[in-house]
C-alpha cells in the first residue's frame, strides 16, 4: 500500500488544511502498514517549504515546479494528480475537502475509477483489506460509515477534522513533470478578491464567534468583534443577518451558507433554527448566549448563558483578556 497526498497552497504558502490531510495520511499509512507517504506539490513554492513537508510525515515529495500550476483548473490538476498516483502506485489518495479539494476529488474519482469519500471526519478502520471511513450526512444529523474497496481509493478530509501532527522527519524531493500543457487549462482567473482580512478563513477556523438578529443592528457588532479578537476567533453570522446586509454573505453559516466544524462555536442572539444548526452542529463545543431561555439552540449547546448579550459580551471579552494575560 502506498499513499499520495495532494498539497494545496496559495502562492507557495501551504494551507493548514493540507497539513491536516498529510498528518492524517501519515496516520493511515501507519495503520495500514503502507510503504510510504508521497506529498504532491503543483506550482511555484520555495525549496525549503517543499522539503519541510517531511516534518508532517511525508517520506517523499513530488514537485511540479511549473508556473502553469499557479493558475487553477480542476481538470488540469486532476490530470497531474492522476499521473502522480499512477507513478507512485498509490492505493490511497488523500486531499483536503476544501474549495480546491471539492473541485478536484470528484474528477479524480472518475479518472482513477476510485471510490471517493467526500468529507471524511475521522480516521478509517479496517474491514478486511477495505477501509471504512466515516463522513457526516443529512447535514450533520447522522454519520455514514462508507466502504472503500477500490484498487485505488480517495479520501477528502473535512477541514479541522484532524489535528496537524508535526514531528522531526525529513523527506526526499524529486521533480515531477506531468504531461499537462497550457491547453489543459480552460479556466481563466480574472481576479481574486480577498475577504477575511487577517483572520483565519471561516471554513478553517478553530474558534468562531457568531451572532444573529439578537444584536439588533450592525452598529453593535463591535461587541462581537471585540470578543472574537480577544479569543483569536473568526466571526460568523446567521442567515437573516446576512440577508439584511448587516454582515457580508461570506460570514453566513448554515445550510445554505458555509458548513463549519470548529472546536468552539459561540452563538450570540441566534435562536437556533434547524437550517442554522445544519451548518454548525458538528462543532466540538457549542456555547449559546441568548436572552430567551426557550431558544431551541440551548438544546444543541454544551454551555449556555441566558441573558442580555449587550451586558455579557463585554464581561466575556474582559475575562478572555485576563485569561490570555495569565496564560501568556
Amino acid at each position: 500500500m502506498s499513499v499520495l497526498v495532494y498539497i494545496d497552497h496559495a502562492g507557495g504558502n501551504i494551507k493548514k488544511v493540507s497539513l491536516e490531510a498529510l498528518s492524517y495520511a501519515t496516520k493511515v499509512a501507519e495503520l495500514t502498514g503502507a510503504a510510504g507517504v508521497t506529498a504532491l506539490v503543483l506550482g511555484s513554492a520555495a525549496d525549503a517549504t517543499v522539503a519541510g513537508l517531511g516534518a508532517y510525515g511525508a517520506t517523499h515529495v513530488l514537485w511540479a515546479n511549473n508556473p502553469l500550476f499557479d493558475n487553477f483548473d480542476s481538470g488540469a490538476f486532476t490530470k497531474a494528480i492522476a499521473e502522480a498516483a499512477a507513478q507512485t502506485g498509490a492505493n490511497l489518495v488523500v486531499l483536503s475537502h476544501n474549495s480546491r479539494g471539492k473541485a478536484i476529488a470528484p474528477r479524480l474519482s472518475v479518472r482513477l475509477k476510485a471510490p471517493l469519500i467526500a468529507g471524511a471526519v475521522s480516521l478509517p478502520t479496517l474491514d478486511g483489506s477495505a477501509l471504512v471511513v466515516r463522513k457526516s450526512v443529512f447535514s450533520g444529523k447522522a454519520f455514514a460509515d462508507c466502504v472503500l474497496a477500490g484498487a485505488t481509493n480517495i479520501i477528502s478530509l473535512n477541514p479541522n477534522a484532524y489535528s496537524v501532527a508535526k514531528g522531526g522527519g525529513s523527506c526526499s524531493v524529486s521533480a515531477f513533470s506531468p504531461s499537462v500543457s497550457a491547453a489543459d487549462f480552460k479556466i481563466t482567473t480574472v481576479s481574486v478578491e480577498k475577504q477575511s482580512g487577517d483572520a483565519v478563513p471561516l471554513p478553517e477556523a478553530e474558534l468562531v464567534v457568531s451572532a444573529g438578529r439578537g444584536m439588533r443592528g450592525p452598529e453593535n457588532w463591535y461587541l462581537v468583534e471585540d470578543l472574537a479578537t480577544a479569543l483569536g476567533a473568526t466571526t460568523a453570522c446567521s442567515r437573516p443577518v446576512a440577508d439584511v446586509h448587516w454582515r457580508p454573505h461570506h460570514e453566513h453559516v448554515g445550510q445554505t451558507g458555509i458548513t463549519i466544524r470548529p472546536n468552539l462555536y459561540i452563538a450570540i442572539g441566534i435562536s437556533g433554527a434547524i437550517q442554522h444548526l445544519a451548518g454548525v452542529n458538528n462543532s466540538k463545543v457549542i456555547v449559546v448566549i441568548n436572552k430567551d431561555s426557550e431558544a431551541p439552540f440551548f438544546k444543541a449547546a454544551d454551555y449556555g448563558i441566558v441573558g442580555d448579550a449587550f451586558e455579557i459580551l463585554p464581561k466575556l471579552t474582559e475575562a478572555v483578556k485576563r485569561f490570555k494575560a495569565e496564560h501568556a
Binding site: 488544511v17 480546491r100 479556466i187 481563466t188 482567473t189 481576479s191 478578491e193 480577498k194 478563513p201
Partner: peptide, 9 residues
C-alpha cells in the same frame, strides 16, 4: 475560496 472570492471565466 477560503478567505476570498475568485472571478473566473
Amino acid at each position: 475560496i477560503e478567505g476570498g472570492i475568485e472571478t473566473l471565466s
